[in-house]
């Protein structure tokens, strides 16, 4: 991945496996404390097991492996992908996930064709496809193809084809 040198963050301690393990361990401990306070956790079943035993076992396994990350021989290692990660990458991942959620939310009121075509066109432009009319044309064509294929296959779709159509 090509990046400008100024964007590259330094590989500090917080990018090491040890920091990752510690962060996870804290999060798992908080989750465990939350579960422990729930009534269902301590409810005994007919076979003698409490209801929270297996969720607790899963969390215990997560905690042990997270602690192993902080102590094992690779604890000072910085994974290549983490060395170049900055907060903007995370922000973009959130924005893109939100965009996908908005796409779904708009499917019911606006019908499927318009939101899909709009999402595709905007994403193509964001990801660098030029000129704009190529992105718009491709977006419309792909949206039509996707809807046609899914409709032909009889797959349940989140909205109607066009607004106000059932």
């Amino acid at each position: 991945m090509q990046r400008k040198p100024s964007r590259r963050a330094p590989a500090g301690w917080w990018r090491t496996n040890q920091a990752l393990g510690l962060g996870i361990a804290i999060a798992v401990a908080v989750l465990f404390a939350y579960l422990w306070q729930q009534d269902w956790y301590h409810r005994e079943q007919r076979d003698g097991f409490i209801l929270g035993f297996f969720p607790g076992l899963g969390l215990a396994a997560m905690l042990v492996t997270a602690l192993a990350l902080t102590l094992d021989r690779w604890r000072h290692t910085v994974v290549e992908e983490i060395a170049t990660l900055d907060w903007r990458d995370l922000l973009w991942a959130v924005v893109l996930s939100a965009a996908a959620l908005s796409l779904y939310a708009l499917m019911e009121p606006l019908g499927m064709l318009l939101p899909i075509a709009l999402f595709l066109a905007l994403m193509m432009l964001l990801l660098g496809l030029r000129p704009w009319y190529l992105a718009a044309g491709l977006a419309a064509a792909i949206a039509l193809i996707i809807l046609a294929v899914f409709t032909l296959l009889g797959i349940r779709l989140p909205g109607a084809f066009l607004p106000l159509l059932i």
Binding site: L96, A100, L103, F119, M123, M124, L127, L129, I142, I146
Partner: peptide
């Protein structure tokens, strides 16, 4: 081109 492929797969994932 990936700029065409990536959003198309995201749409397929949502549907």
């Amino acid at each position: 081109p990936k700029p065409v492929l990536v959003p198309t797969i995201m749409v397929l994932a949502v549907i």
